[in-house]
Amino acid sequence: MQLRSVRRIHGSGDGAVAALDDVSLSFPRATFTAVMGPSGSGKSTLLQCAAGLDRPTSGSVSIGGTELTELTERGLTLLRRERVGFVFQSFNLLPALTAEQNVALPLRLAGRRTSRARVRDVLDRVGLADRAKHRPTELSGGQQQRVALARALITRPEVLFADEPTGALDSRTGREVLAILRSLADRDGSTIVMVTHDPVAASYADRVVFLVDGRVGGELSAPSAEEIAARMTALEAVPC
């Protein structure tokens, strides 16, 4: 997946704000990248443009050779449904459905055949094979996030986007979710892009990309949580 010279301008005239300003990044297959930066640095906008949830003002975004900026709205919807997975801080599970029904939902919405074996396989992958019949209210926060992760995996996405996936979890369950994300890159060859504010979470990634005022402000390769925290402290100390 690649972003080339991506700009995203909000507003117009004197009130225009560049949420992203000439951002070029590559996210190779089978890698796990964390995106960090001070508040308002453009992290969420980067994720939305990369995932086809928002269109850049200029520049290009491509996933597996498909140029997203050239797709119609229907084309973007199909791409997100079939080739992209999402995990958010809020689990977004339907309370009336069981875990296995929540996981199968993307396939049902796409009109695709739902294989119970496939559903059970992804639930087993996230350690919840024995919770298939439980509804969200019968699950802990960490279990709900793992159901949400299984739901994202059911379509075998090329790229998985995670927006603060451990933000609502305690440290132990957060580590469990991060270990699953790590294994998706290592074992399945998935491309993982995670926005986070947590240096410990970011340390699970192969690299950490830092954004500052909508621009790439450097990156670290295989860093420790301490190195990430030190870089973030330095970035946040820079006057606007």
Rank of each mutant, 00 (worst) to 15 (best):
A152K: 06
K133T: 15
L184G: 06
G174F: 07
D213K: 13
T33C: 11
L169Q: 12
E158M: 07
E219I: 04
P239G: 01
T114H: 02
G15L: 13
G174N: 03
R156W: 00
G174E: 07
T77L: 13
Q101V: 01
E176L: 12
G11D: 09
L93F: 09
P106D: 02
S39N: 08
R113S: 15
G13W: 10
H134G: 06
S41W: 05
R74C: 02
F161A: 07
L128M: 09
T191Y: 02
A234S: 10
R125A: 12
S41L: 09
E73S: 14
T155E: 02
S26T: 15
M194R: 04
A150Q: 05
E67C: 11
A110D: 09
D213I: 02
V238I: 14
A162N: 01
G42C: 09
E67A: 12
T233N: 04
G127L: 08
E70A: 15
L76Y: 01
L79H: 11
Q144I: 03
L71K: 10
A201P: 06
F27A: 06
V35Y: 08
F27I: 07
S221A: 13
Q145D: 10
V209L: 12
D124G: 15
S60A: 10
D22S: 11
R118K: 14
L211Q: 08
D163G: 09
A205D: 06
A162Q: 02
